[in-house]
């Protein structure tokens, strides 16, 4: 059923059919939270992508407001600074007619955890339908999900997972390449500290792509090959014949902690420029989760190359994917016994 849906949803008019099948229980999202990609089957991932695909077309129309989440409350709870992801979730929720509340909780370095549980309990008492949570510590969103009885979407926890980013990347790839299975995907840069990399590894593996990681050895975490990836420490070799090149953001504070000596040196060996890109396939797609550090991990000219770069499209897919997540999660959660 999921497969037939894939092509059908190119037409926005079929959104209604999808929704009615969904409402009638023919299509069902089998989880109460979206905490990570790990553990999701390819069928479930396809379901999310199919649903999102619909919203892409729909969002491009002028009169595009929907009402499926009318009367529902979504709380964006961000313990870590974010503009892009939070805005994307906010827009997604509003497109579906939900009430949205944004909460940015300043993290005091000492009492982070207390704030987390206390805030979760307080917000839970207000009976939201979905909590969208970002936190600087791995596992924090799961911990919070255990204390509330509404659906929880992980908008990024530490260096663990960022599932909606992986989904929007997958949707971008699927629309550009027509499929994910069989593609050779290189993820390049600060793998060690990246939740985007981890979610993408899980998703791409589940969907049958082949994943390569390219980074200096200091930014490759221990035993990562066991997650089903091939590791390269040289851009030219790693990019050979790749269909997709995913760049990761490099945080400059990594330099002071000895992961690499200088930005100049990093860009020389691991920054994506046309010369290195020439090793990939001619039609290789360039992606970046943003925000970019131009001249650090990616050259401006490459990032802005509309023929090759899907970076802006990724942002558009972000809204559609988050609409799909909200839609599917709220369909099974009813207030009070969501978990």
């Amino acid at each position: 059923m999921v497969k037939t849906a894939t092509c059908a949803f190119r037409k926005a008019s079929l959104l209604c059919r999808f929704m009615s099948e969904f409402a009638s229980g023919k299509i069902r999202f089998p989880h109460s939270h979206l905490l990570g990609i790990e553990g999701l089957t390819s069928n479930v991932i396809s379901l999310l992508l199919d649903c999102a695909e619909n919203f892409v077309e729909h969002n491009r129309q002028t009169d595009n407001k929907l009402s499926s989440l009318s009367g529902r409350t979504i709380i964006n709870l961000f313990f870590e600074e974010s503009t892009r992801t939070r805005t994307s979730f906010e827009l997604a929720a509003k497109q579906l007619g939900a009430n949205v509340i944004n909460m940015s909780v300043a993290t005091s370095s000492v009492k982070k955890g207390e704030t987390l549980i206390d805030t979760a309990m307080t917000l839970n008492a207000m009976h939201p339908d979905v909590l969208v949570v970002r936190h600087s510590e791995s596992g924090a969103v799961k911990l919070l999900s255990e204390k509330v009885n509404c659906a929880v979407i992980n908008a990024g926890d530490g260096r663990h997972e960022h599932p909606t980013q992986a989904l929007l990347d997958a949707l971008t790839i699927r629309r550009r390449k027509g499929h994910i299975s069989g593609l050779l995907v290189a993820i390049c840069g600060d793998i060690a500290h990246s939740r985007v990399a981890r979610s993408n590894i899980h998703l791409l593996n589940a969907m049958g792509a082949q994943v390569r990681l390219i980074a200096p050895k200091t930014l490759i975490p221990s035993s990562i090959a066991k997650m089903g990836v091939e590791v390269f420490n040289n851009m030219e070799e790693g990019l050979q014949d790749c269909d997709i090149v995913m760049m990761l953001r490099l945080q400059s504070e990594r330099m002071s902690s000895g992961f690499f000596p200088s930005i100049r040196e990093y860009f020389h060996f691991f920054g994506l420029d046309y010369k290195k890109l020439a090793n990939a396939k001619d039609d290789a797609l360039i992606m970046h989760p943003g925000p970019m550090n131009r001249g650090v991990e990616i050259a401006s000219e490459v990032a802005d190359d509309l023929g090759r770069s899907a970076i802006r499209e990724q942002v558009e897919m972000g809204v559609a994917v988050r609409m799909a997540c909200l839609e599917l999660l709220t369909a099974i959660s009813t207030k009070g016994n969501g978990t």
Partner: peptide
């Protein structure tokens, strides 16, 4: 402990 589990969970390892 550093290793596969720490990497999967996104936690810093102690070698």
């Amino acid at each position: 402990n550093s290793g596969e589990t720490a990497t999967r969970l996104g936690l810093s390892g102690i070698p």
